[in-house]
Design a protein around this nucleic acid. Sequence first.
DNA 1: GAGCACTGC
Length: 640
Amino acid sequence: MAQDSEAPPAKRLKAAPPGTPPQSAAPPAHVQRRSLPISGARGPLLARLRRLDTAVLIGETGSGKTTQLPQYLYEVGIGHPGTIAVTQPRRVAAVTLAARVAEEKRTELGRLVGYTVRFDDCSCAETRIRFLTDGMLLREAIGDPLLHKYSVVILDEAHERTIHTDVLFGVVKAAQKKRKERGLRPLKVIVMSATMDVDLFSQYFNGAPVIYLEGRQHPIDIFYTKEQQSDYLQAALVSIFQIHQEAPACQDILVFLTGQEEIEAMTKTCRDVAQHLPEGCPRMTVLPLYASLPHSQQLRAFKPTPEGCRKVILSTNIAETSITIAGIKFVVDTGMVKAKKYSPETGLEVLAVQQVSKAQAWQRTGRAGRQESGICYRLYTEEDFEKFEEMTTPEIQRCNLASVVLQLLALKIPNVLTFDFMSKPSPDAIQAAIDQLDLLGAVTHKEGQLVLTPLGKKMAVFPLDPKFSKAILLSPKFHCAEEILTIVSLLSVDSVLHNPPAQRDEVQAARRKFISSEGDHLTLLNVYRAYKNVNGHKLSMPLESCRGDTGSVRRCLAHGLFMNAAELRPDGSYGTVDSQQAVAIHPSSVLFQAKPACVVYTGLLRTSRCYMRDLCVVDAEWLHEAAPEYFRRKLRMANN
DNA sequence: GAGCACTGC
């Protein structure tokens, strides 16, 4: 039964997202539906929700809240007439959930029940239950800040705190208030989350009641190390083979590590060790899993292994939420993750290995108990665990906010510095974003208020870093719209160039013929042009091309990226024009061994050093031409 | 001189 405001059971596991698609054969949808824990609570739950404007619904894995609640609301006419929106952080989840619910309602997907994700809208005027990505609803809000189309908005997976969900919190809260003030149809808001952050959500929504739903998570035994481990990789290796020698071969192991290189190296080590095991030990299949691994290789992690062979999956945090693997009995948690931070003062993104939060550790642990009871080995002491941060810092406090601020201004938010964020980004971060938009000519002050310029309004239409939107919008002036669109498109996908560490030399050799001495952007353009020739495709849009005049392309890029410029110093190192920060050319760049006098880059990333990524050779003069006042100011500062 | 967690519009 649903109960109000009762503390969640101690040490209960944080729920894994219910949005993940079922991996094994399930009974017909309508048969399974009645047996979900939420169905027992249907009556009282709906009675409460009918009376509430806003509610926070806490449900554990397997409670069925995501698939059932929208149907319940629809069936009893809550929100009628109008559409029920259910947001998800990930596309796959939005699509598979819509398919599941359509099946349960025995209707054709895209009619009563539909979904809307980027590039794929499977919904129509009839649609009453619509699953969307949170980013998609945010886009819709730009055209309709009061969300008139919707009578209920369910923000699911709220605990993940994606940048889009965080902005949506503010948007739906404001829409709800305005609709009430104007006597419009009320907007019901339901925030759904795993067992955490409950107070924060409730407080933010003016003390909205919290409703708990029981879940169906299997019990998981947790073991900590007795002593601190100086080398988590070594500790992981020992744990894997200890489990391997003791547990039945049908029980698979999921190990959480931090990144591609580490995972590839560990894969090799495990395979080597597995070759030399004593008689009678089961066989072992070791499989890496990370986002940039080609899809076909990712799929291997899902395949069941033959009898008498254990599967060991070495994964990044992709297996925490995005990917669910059936049959995991053991989780080995190193307690480490590679995560991004952003410092507004330097505009620096730092990618560093750090400790996970408690919430993240629970999420990892939960991956062991999805089908039956499980075991989790935490490669840190319980004492250390208690010192972990409670929550992972929300993404909105770890990012460059230029495009968020641009979107808020497009939503006609009167003052972005005082926008009602659930977790406020630092004023410095917001100011840095405003400054960037100002330099790009996207904003201006009007009667003491920050507003978008006509250029800024156009920039807000693009789902891109404003620097790239600017370059696209200026490209007709430089007669190179075709080239700039191609380059920006290629920068927006990560599937173009796969770079497995084991084949780095081969990769380098294959790329050699596309390399442009003018930098990475033009190299990408060469790759695309070669691809286009092979496939014989032509763009159907009448876009002007500057042909061989790559100078125009670079000049246009400089107009978007002038804030990201660096110059060669007399000692052979590079310094950013903006803050004289010492930077280096990233080894992945075609310019790695070159020494151009002046470059622009897509972004900075600090790992072992501070690297510029995706470089383009430019003339210093073009930078001045792109933002004369900005560079005059820089010069003055340099002279002082 | 030597390397890129994960989403999403």
